[in-house]
Simulated scan of single mutants.
Amino acid sequence: MTPKDMLLGLAIIFAWGLNFIAIRWGLDEMTPMMLGGFRFLIIAVIGSFFFSRPKTPWLWIAGYALSLNFGQFAFLFSAMHFGMPAGLASLVLQSQAIFTLLFAVLFLKEYVRPYQLIAISIAAGGLAVIGLNGGNTTMTVLGFALTLAGASSWALGNIFTKTISKKGYDANVNLIIWSCWIPPVPFFLSAYFIDGSDVMWQNITSINWKTAATLAYLSIVATVCGYGLWNYLLSRYPAGTVAPLALGVPVVGLTSAALILNEQISHIQWIGILLVLAGLVLNTLGGRWLTKKSQTSAT
């Protein structure tokens, strides 16, 4: 990647790392499905005045929206509601890099190198350590499983993004804005059947400045800015190269959760965290190491 694109990746890291703090605060005020519905409704209503509808067919927009927007955040918000700490959620969600590589092989026929398979194995082992050793923390098995489901939905959204670009359409901020008209429908329907109409109305009437600030951050910073930059990078580089850039997100997420939310992580889970980070680092930098090695051998 160019230095400019690496800086854009750094901006994504901080926007998404602090995103988990905002989600935690938002879930203190609203139910998961209502928080998700309002997040994307705000983006759609405001953004459509400033960005034109993309030329991408609605079928592809729907696939992108239901996987990246609804699927990822319905699972993630529910996971944090049911006992997934914000810091650990920021890490486990990065298993999207593993799912993205697997989906890229299945759907895009991309080639996975041996070092990437090793990286996947290391990261998967770290996730297993985290998932099996949550007894001494506030993490629940349900929360962990739902976070993995959110990561797989994010990965599927990455595949839709890459496919849209390959078909000659722009996977830019216009796509992000207009795709946000779709997820409020399944979010609010889910809220109706899960929470009930009385709880939905209570969520609406109890909106305060904290809720508004949280929704603003989730909508503008994390979604429009974050995914706008993310899609830009995905349109320029292979999915397997861009996905691991989210490596820095859990560093920001874990640090901010410990400082702001006072979250605690067991010693064994820290081993799992280090394994996941090691796997993601290998997946991110392994290609460069091999290239440098081959160049050195050639000289």
Rank of each mutant, 00 (worst) to 15 (best):
L91T: 12
V112T: 15
V224P: 04
L68E: 09
R53D: 00
P250M: 05
V242Y: 09
P32M: 13
L146M: 05
V45I: 11
K167H: 13
W16M: 00
K210T: 15
N19S: 10
D198L: 12
G196E: 13
L259I: 15
S266Q: 02
V105L: 15
D198Q: 11
A79C: 01
K167A: 06
A97M: 15
I61A: 11
I194V: 15
A145Q: 01
W154G: 05
V242P: 04
L66R: 11
A97V: 15
R288M: 02
Y111D: 05
F82T: 01
V105H: 11
R236Y: 07
T140P: 06
F70W: 13
V276A: 10
G143M: 04
Q295G: 02
M30S: 04
Y115I: 04
W16K: 10
S219T: 02
F82D: 03
Q72D: 04
N172Y: 02
L132W: 11
Q295I: 13
W270P: 07
S153R: 03
P238R: 10
N133V: 12
I98W: 05
C180M: 07
G87Q: 14
G248W: 00
G83E: 02
L274I: 14
V276F: 00
A74E: 10
S152K: 01
T31A: 06
T56V: 12
I98A: 08
G228F: 04
T140M: 08
A239S: 15
W16C: 07
N203Q: 04
F40C: 12
N158W: 02
T255K: 09
P32S: 10
T100W: 11
S67F: 04
P54A: 10
F40A: 11
N203M: 06
V252W: 09
D170H: 12
L277Y: 06
V252G: 02
A124E: 08
S48K: 03
S165L: 07
W25Q: 05
Y232V: 00
Q269E: 00
V252Y: 06
V281T: 15
L35K: 09
G17D: 08
G63M: 05
I176S: 10
L66K: 14
M30C: 04
